[in-house]
Simulated assay, not measured.
Amino acid sequence: MMMTRYVFFGGKLLDVDAGTLREGLELLVENDRIAQVSEGRIDAPDAERIDLGGRTLMPGLVDAHVHVVATLVNLAENAALPSSVIALRSAGIMRKMLMRGFTTLRDLAGADLGLQMAINEGEIDAPRLVICGKALSQTVGHGDYRARYDNRPLHQASLGSLGRIADGVDEVRRATREEIKNGAQFIKIMANGGVASPNDPIHVLQYSREEIIAIVEEAENYGLYVAAHTYSDASIRRAVECGVKSLEHCNLITPETARLAAEAGAIACPTLVAYEGLALEGANFGLNPDPPPRSIRFASPVWNR
């Protein structure tokens, strides 16, 4: 593989440790790695020199909770769409995120190995993509988008489906193993109710302790961790006690539970910008408090659930 080398100069560099913009620096990039930062001219005769023209150079942004395949507000309709349409829409979403400065995306349900392969092979312009595959949900859980009168199976094979149903210890073990086989780099579970699913209010606890412990064991056997959709303090505490390491949303956490989570080595991904975004822009997308309208398209995946 031929090495590509670039020297950037003539701009400001963001020093994230000091929180300041620094001038007069040069930066050498070799392939996809920063090789050198210098206060003087970098001696690299084979490198292409790029004048920033006073612009600011900064590290790439990371979106730690996103759903790149969620192209409709109505998740049931999204899941029913052809996978080819979802893939093309997702490619557009990711390219727009790249152009906004995001160089890594951690997808919290839906994105698959195929999208990741297309990015790694250079078929689409997109940030690096970290995937968990399909989120695991119990029946009538946050990943079960069916109305009460609808007992048809989920579109689990569709790229547009964010999750899959698995009930009971044996089923969740198999589902965890299958997602790992399909390329998951961590496992996502729905451990609490939510606003994007029709039959599980926020207070609802989901998955038994035995099921969560089984999922955690299978993930850890493979050197992976488990992330959980969780809002209420009770669900957060329960998830931490069962070995979950990544707490998604966790809006209603108490200081006591936060200390417990920190002592257990868990991290929080609060997604607060999503709620601010909904408050500021939700009406422009036609969103109502309950239920969300059907067939609303997003230009970008701001509606992190």
Rank of each mutant, 00 (worst) to 15 (best):
D125Q: 11
S208N: 03
P201E: 06
L162W: 00
A147Y: 11
A196F: 13
L154N: 03
P153Q: 01
L162E: 14
N192E: 08
R146W: 02
R177I: 09
Y149D: 15
P127E: 01
C132E: 02
E171K: 14
I119E: 04
Q116S: 05
I212W: 03
I180V: 14
I202F: 12
R152T: 15
I187L: 12
D125C: 06
Q116P: 01
N182S: 13
K181A: 15
L154W: 07
V204M: 12
R164Y: 00
A214P: 09
G160W: 09
I202M: 13
Y149K: 08
F186T: 00
Q206I: 07
E121Y: 01
I187C: 05
I180G: 07
H155L: 02
D167I: 05
V204E: 12
I119L: 01
D170C: 01
Y145P: 14
I165M: 11
I215P: 03
L136K: 06
R146L: 03
G194A: 13
I215F: 10
G183R: 08
V169F: 07
G193A: 08
K188F: 02
D144A: 10
D125V: 05
A126V: 06
V204H: 12
N120G: 05
R177E: 13
T139N: 02
Q156C: 06
S208M: 02
D200A: 15
E211P: 03
H142K: 00
A147R: 14
R148A: 15
V140Q: 11
A191E: 04
R174V: 13
R148S: 12
M117V: 11
H155Q: 11
G183I: 04
G160N: 04
Y149E: 14
K181Q: 13
P153H: 02
A184Y: 07
A166F: 03
E211V: 03
V140A: 10
R173Y: 00
I119A: 01
N151Y: 11
Y207R: 04
M190K: 01
H142G: 14
V204W: 07
S161P: 00
P201V: 04
G141I: 02
H142S: 13
G193H: 06
G194F: 09
R164S: 08
Q116N: 00
R146A: 03
A157N: 11
K134R: 12
A157R: 11
R173F: 01
P198E: 10
Y207E: 06
L136A: 05
A191Y: 07
Q156F: 08
D200E: 14
L129S: 06
S208G: 12
S161I: 00
P198A: 10
I131P: 09
L159Q: 06
E171S: 15
E210N: 09
L129M: 08
G160M: 07
P127T: 01
